[in-house]
Amino acid sequence: MKPILELRSLSKAFGGLQVIQDLDLVVGAGQIVTDDDPVVGQGEAVADLDFSLKPGEIVSVIGPNGAGKTTLFNLITGIYEPDSGDILMDGRSIIGLSPEQVSNLGVARTFQTLRVFLNMTVKENVMAAAYGNTKVGMWGSVFRTPSARREEKQISDLAESKLSFFGERLMGYRWDQPAYSLSYANRRRLEIARAMATNPRLLMLDEPAAGMNPAETHEITELIGQLRDDVGYSILVIEHDMHVVEGISDRVIALDHGVKIAEGSFEEVATNPHVIEAYLGAGAAGTK
């Protein structure tokens, strides 16, 4: 079993500033559920353990502002091309593919600065994302052929099921409201629903809990866990809220100035002197 996503010594610089440097990362390689202590990220080495694996795992990326977290997302989804290194999906390089092609391979993301389709309805936002998995052409739509009607019904059902994932918040009368009428937190949920509608295997969430109150943060933490357990997504999360990171992560990666300074369980990374230094400055690790 090949990992869903694998980065091999990835590097990216903007005008002399090294944003990502020699980064290695494996996501969705599988995870032993029988063991109390999950062993993850062993790539093809775990291939023969297929029977005891479930595909979903949650990897959190942490690091101070400017550490290169969002750049990493942009490299994976094809907005930027890396200077060197390789990005593999299911063992195939996706370097040079457009964001559209990458998303059709099963990578969906949300954005740190929300990018919902503001002047479309809530339901349309999610329905639009089903584009890549549907076929009916322009003429089929113009004449409303039976197959077009059938597919439209499927898209509608898909959108409703994805929106129902968030309880009552995005249901009922909300469907026909424009997305701009949603609160900040609900827009974040809508972005996740929209990403789910592309039928991904890897979900990349850029600060899903930003701008949420403690209760909502708690809720989104549970929800991300559900996305892994019930739906089976592998999830790559950027998050600043350490409670969320602690609550959801199977594995944590810490970046600083584009370099991976720590990787492991939350406890390991959180107590790592390099990580503490990156967040609090030199000398802070010693005082702890």
């Binding site: 989804t77 907005i79 457009s98 964001p99 559209e100 998303s103 059709n104 969906a108 993301r109 954005f111 990018r115 919902v116 389709f117 503001l118 002047n119 479309m120 639009a128 994302a129 089903a130 584009y131 890549g132 998995n133 929209r194 990403a195 509608a197 592309t198």
Partner: peptide, 11 residues
């Protein structure tokens, strides 16, 4: 509404 987001959503 948002070309970049549309591109990321398989369009």
């Amino acid at each position: 509404e948002d070309t970049l987001a549309a591109e990321h959503m398989t369009m």
